[in-house]
Lab assay of single mutants.
Amino acid sequence: GCWSIEHVEQYLGTDELPKNDLITYLQKNADAAFLRHWKLTGTNKSIRKNRNCSQLIAAYKDFCEHGT
């Protein structure tokens, strides 16, 4: 299931919640338009490089609020 937004804000980028895991989750569960909008298409590695934690948190919040 979903992590809470508080959990993501607190732990994203740590061993508790690697950016990797959040990106994988969104790529698996969000639709193509969402991924394009948040620039989460492409390889996990390129996304990790190009999107910082606050951008990923914003995307995750949007996903939780509007889910697909």
Rank of each mutant, 00 (worst) to 15 (best):
N44P: 08
G67I: 15
G13H: 02
C53Y: 05
H66K: 14
R48L: 09
Q55G: 06
G67K: 13
K45G: 07
I57H: 03
E6A: 13
T41L: 14
Y25D: 00
E9L: 06
A59K: 01
F34D: 03
R36T: 12
K49W: 03
L12H: 04
K39I: 03
T68V: 12
K39L: 07
K39A: 09
Q27Y: 03
F63T: 00
E16Q: 15
Q10L: 08
A59V: 12
H37V: 09
L22M: 12
E65Y: 10
D31A: 07
G67D: 11
N52I: 04
T14V: 02
E65P: 05
V8R: 01
K61T: 07
R51N: 13
T43S: 14
Y11K: 15
E9D: 05
G13S: 03
L40A: 00
A33G: 10
A33V: 13
R48V: 09
G1F: 14
H7T: 11
I5P: 07
N50D: 08
Y60C: 02
L22D: 02
P18V: 06
T43L: 08
L40V: 04
Y11W: 10
T24I: 09
V8C: 05
H7Y: 13
T24Q: 15
L12N: 00
F63P: 01
G13C: 03
L12Y: 00
A58C: 09
K49Q: 07
Y60D: 00
I5C: 07
T43E: 14
C64K: 11
F34T: 04
A30F: 00
L17K: 01
T24Y: 08
L40F: 05
K39E: 09
K45Q: 08
L17D: 01
L17M: 10
N29F: 08
L56N: 00
Q27P: 00
D62T: 07
D31I: 01
A33W: 10
Q10K: 14
N20S: 14
W38E: 02
F34M: 04
Q27R: 13
L22C: 04
N20W: 08
G13T: 02
W38I: 01
L35P: 00
Y11F: 11
N29A: 10
K45Y: 06
W38D: 01
Y25I: 03
L56A: 01
S4G: 05
N44H: 08
C53H: 07
W38K: 03
Y25S: 02
Y11A: 09
L17G: 01
L56T: 01
H37R: 15
T43D: 12
F63K: 01
N52E: 08
E9Y: 06
K19R: 06
E9T: 12
V8L: 10
A58T: 10
E6T: 10
L26W: 00
L56Q: 00
C2I: 12
L35R: 06
T14M: 04
Y11E: 04
I47G: 07
N50L: 07
A30P: 00
I57T: 07
A59T: 05
H66T: 12
V8G: 01
H66C: 14
A32W: 10
L26M: 12
L40I: 13
D21I: 13
W3A: 02
K19Y: 07
K61F: 03
N44G: 10
D15E: 12
T14P: 00
R51L: 12
K45R: 11
Q55W: 12
T43P: 09
Y11H: 13
Y11V: 08
W38T: 02
D21H: 15
E16T: 13
K19V: 07
L26Q: 00
S46W: 08
G67T: 12
F34H: 03
T24P: 01
K61G: 04
A59D: 01
T14Q: 07
E65H: 13
R36Y: 08
G42W: 04
N20K: 15
G13Y: 01
Y25A: 03
L22P: 00
H7W: 08
V8H: 01
K28C: 07
S46C: 08
E16P: 05
P18N: 07
D15R: 15
C64Y: 13
L12R: 01
K19E: 07
H66A: 14
L35C: 07
E6L: 04
Y60T: 01
C53F: 04
S46E: 12
C53W: 04
I57V: 09
I47R: 05
I47F: 03
Y25N: 03
N52Q: 07
I23D: 02
E9C: 12
G42Q: 07
F63L: 06
I47N: 05
R36D: 11
E9A: 13
L56D: 00
L56F: 01
H66W: 12
K45V: 08
K19T: 06
G1D: 09
N20D: 09
V8S: 01
N20V: 15
Q10E: 07
G42Y: 05
